[in-house]
Amino acid sequence: MPNGHTLVETRALIMRFGPVTAVDGISFSVDRGEVVGFLGPNGAGKSTTMKIIAGFLEPTSGAAFVAGHDTRLDPIPARRHLGYLPEGAPAYPDMTVADFLGFVASLRGLTSRQTSNRLAELVESIDLAEVWNRRIEALSKGYKRRVGIAMALVHDPDVLILDEPTDGLDPNQKHEMRTLIRALAPSKAIIVSTHILEEVEAICTRAIVIARGKMLADATPAELLARAPERHGEDHQMVKTTRLEDAFRHITLEQAGV
């Protein structure tokens, strides 16, 4: 049961798309102050799980809770607590950054005064000044992603769900995004999905490994590292991998029966 700090909880989530079981019995909870990394191969079910928590998809069975509200039975209160960056950071190409964020802020119930204060903060922290009055279709991939982050943060939510937030960012921007996430962490429950394992070590307090819809691990990055197999003859390694990559490959390939 939620202990008062639990902001996200999923119970035995199952999601089927026709014959495909995209999510197969996923249960976990995330407390305030935690940053949980979703790891897993392509098609593992990370985005689908996030869509269910965000209330976009209804699970075939099981339930998800955001700040204690069932995302299916009580969607509107759940959504108020949630900031969600969908995969690919969708936005309206014909709108300017300012108009787009203003649009979302208004639908989030901010007054125009609150909106201008909040947007001024976000321009600072996410470094959007340069593109503020540019149309979104004219933005680079990295800036587009940053607009998506700003969109998710507009109402300063308790819960943040970010689907590949650093995808497409250059190394400097990646670094800044991680700094930002770490700065936000103490007051929120954050779930990020990523294919970049060093990111998990850099920002996550916990990592959940998913493959073929099943949860294979739920551990701290350090515990995950301990599951990496011993390296033999490291000198012969043709492709350099990190210890965390070894652990990831070990866990996910083991399930696949390789």
Binding site: K51, I76, R79, L107, R108, G109
Partner: peptide, 14 residues
């Protein structure tokens, strides 16, 4: 097509 439906349907709006 844009994927913005995901954004609209996760806002606290009916």
């Amino acid at each position: 097509r844009l994927g913005t439906i995901e954004l609209l349907m996760t806002l606290p709006v009916q």
